[in-house]
Design a binder for these strands. Structure first.
Length: 592
RNA sequence: GGCCCAGUAGUUCAACUGGAUAGAAUAUCAGAUUUCGGCUCUGAGGGUUGGGGGUUCGAAUCCUCCCUGGGUCACCA
């Protein structure tokens, strides 16, 4: 209801400042509570001090003024400190007219001057396949990107790929030793699954060696450090850093398998990226920036040669930036990557990092370090932090294989969707391809909605069984409503006209009121772009539509004008479901 | 132990960032309806917002002290 709210605000502020001596006032409108008469409410309490009036007098003055000035305000009443305004049908009718004309209502166009935001998400390690945690990350990152775009920003979807380190060497070593030249083609495995298989194999062989050493009289701790496989993996890492060509080739090949595998998963999720950054390409830049910081005196060196920053003044600790042997740590690489990104996109106005909340501290430190280095862009960084996804059986542990694999999960959701659809027996007219497509849409819709409807900060208890519930506050419920509307619209032939002399019944008015408060328009401030908000908004809209559908007989032989109005209203609801679902990355089937 | 986050109906989640009597879904119970659809609709019960104290016209929300759970404090990433 932004435009309405805005024009009312302006009118009220003008009026008030002509009567009183006011400064810096901002009016907050809110939807009127159900039990009170009215559509939109102005809270008067904040205005009382400056005007030194009691609520009923002030409310009366504003109310009468609005009725005289605004064609859209038809009645008002004041209850304690709340001024409730009733909005006229004329407003809603003209709103509906506008709504139907505009494609993607609520989306702001991205033009040349639009701010550029880089949003990092996914960012996997290259030694194992994606799991359920990555799915939450991907869905969140993608959805927030969509929402930022809808708010008129130019968004660059990016990743940092952790492509070097001991973990990859472990996979490489196990493959060299036990792989027998196996490739994705020869094994029929997805590349990431194949590489992950050898990572798991390394861990189990390594464990064997450790127990062996312990049985021969070594202490557990020693054994873990002395096991030949580990020593060999470490040597491999050194060879990699020394540019040993054989190791580099193997590394490049296995990483490529993983990238291809990831790409297949992203495609299934409907996600793509505009740019990729690799740790192997930015950690050197990070090291050189540390050197610059040393020169500037932002950092300091310890006796052993390691480099640190002291953040005790900020209430944090001291933090290591370079090891005593001069090699980079995680933080070093992140500093390099951030700097590289700004170098590549000089107009970037902000960077968002989609990373789990176990790294809250890390990002606090990273942002502080960048600020202290004096980068102008360092105060427009945001950590999009999210809670873990736990299973009913407990925490996920990738080393113990206690993870829900992303590909498996997607497949499972699809199958469940298929089973339910088959039970209902409404798919007889579809061939196999069409069915597959439909199950994919439903299964993924369920998964996406289930995860996105929850506030990012909160942890999710993911119960695979419960997530596939097709009733209640779920993705398929939304999709089903949409399909029904499509089916309705298909039945109607010919053009429809909107007549302005209609008066609305309560249900219609409620639906229009809801449509006019589209979340993208009302929530444009900073971090408020929550997919959860969009999801809950969508659900409310569908509930409203259902009650409208129930109480209004669309097919009864009644006034042509009324029929037009109702069908156009259905059209508007369906446009809105489509547009809001798009923000969540959901696709909608025309029938199901 | 220090720091960070969470705690809301039996359960899963909301609450427009300080506004009115804390709302939905689900489950349970009672009715209505079946037009294009597995449905849909109406109503009922269900709450000390983890607990105490404070701030003010007004607190789930802000401050403070406790309780519970999770995370983090690595020359890991």
């Amino acid at each position: 209801m932004e435009s309405l709210e805005y024009s009312l605000s302006q009118s009220v502020l003008e009026h008030l400042s002509s009567l009183y001596n006011l400064s810096g006032l901002k009016l907050e409108f809110q939807a009127t509570r159900k039990n009170f008469e009215g559509d939109i409410t102005l809270v008067l309490f904040p205005l009382l001090k400056q005007t030194s009036q009691n609520p009923s007098v002030l409310g009366g003055k504003i109310g009468t003024h609005l009725i005289e000035q605004s064609p859209f305000v038809s009645r008002f009443n004041v209850v304690s400190g709340f001024l409730n305004l009733s909005i006229s049908d004329a407003f809603y009718i003209s709103f509906l007219e506008d709504f139907l004309k505009v494609k993607d209502y609520g989306h702001i166009n991205v033009d040349r001057g639009a701010p550029t935001i880089m949003l990092e998400f996914s960012s996997p390690n290259t030694n194992k396949p994606l799991h359920l945690g990555h799915i939450r990350n991907n869905l969140l990152g993608n959805s927030v990107s969509n929402i930022l775009e809808a708010n008129g920003n130019h968004v660059i979807r990016t990743q940092i790929i952790n492509d070097r380190g001991i973990h990859i060497c472990k996979s490489m070593l196990a493959w060299q030793r036990y792989g027998g030249g196996e490739t994705p083609e020869s094994s029929g495995l997805k590349g990431d699954q194949l590489v992950g298989k050898y990572y798991v194999m390394f861990e189990s062989k390594y464990r064997e060696q450790v127990t062996d050493l312990v049985n021969k009289g070594n202490l557990q701790e020693e054994a873990e450090k002395k096991a030949p496989l580990l020593l060999e993996a470490q040597r491999m890492l050194r060879d990699w850093e020394n540019n040993n060509s054989e190791i580099r080739n193997l590394w490049a090949q296995m990483n490529q398998w993983v990238y291809d595998g990831f790409e297949a998963t992203y495609q299934k999720l409907g996600i793509n990226f505009d740019s990729y950054y690799y740790e192997s390409e930015t950690y050197l830049l990070g090291k050189s920036i540390i050197q610059q910081g040393l020169d500037k005196g932002v950092f300091y060196t310890q006796d052993d040669g390691s480099v640190w920053i002291d953040l005790t003044d900020e209430g944090l600790d001291k933090k290591l930036l370079l090891r005593s042997d001069g090699t980079a740590v995680y933080m070093t690489q992140d500093i390099g990557t951030a700097s590289q990104r700004v170098a590549d996109h000089p107009h970037v106005k902000g960077m968002v990092y989609t990373v789990g909340n176990e790294q809250n501290y890390h990002f606090k430190v990273l942002f502080l370090v960048l600020q202290k280095l004096g980068y102008s862009w360092a105060d427009s960084l945001f950590h999009l932090s999210y809670g873990m996804v736990d299973l009913p059986s407990g925490k996920m542990k990738s080393r113990e294989g206690k993870v829900v694999d992303a590909d498996d999960l997607i497949e499972q959701m699809k199958n469940t969707a298929g089973n339910i659809a088959a039970e209902h027996g409404k798919i007889d007219g579809l061939n196999q391809d069409q069915r597959d497509e439909l199950y994919q849409k439903i299964g993924l819709g369920a998964l996406k909605y289930f995860i996105l409807k929850v506030d990012p900060k909160k942890k999710i208890l993911f119960d695979p069984e419960a997530s596939v519930d097709f009733n209640g506050n779920t993705g398929p419920f939304i999709q089903y409503a949409y399909a029904r509307i499509q089916s309705l619209i298909r039945r109607v032939e010919g053009g429809l006209k909107l007549h302005s002399d209609l008066s609305l019944v309560d249900k219609e008015k409620e639906v229009l009121k809801h449509l006019s408060t589209y979340p993208v328009v009302i929530k444009t401030a900073g971090e408020q772009h929550s997919p959860a908000l969009v999801a809950n908004y969508l659900f409310d809209l569908v509930k409203l539509f259902n009650s409208f559908y129930q109480n209004v007989s669309i097919f009864a032989e009644e006034d042509q004008k009324l029929q037009s109005l109702r069908l156009l209203l259905c059209q508007a609801v369906s446009n809105n479901i489509e547009s809001a679902s798009g923000l969540l990355g959901m696709t909608l089937p025309d029938s199901m």
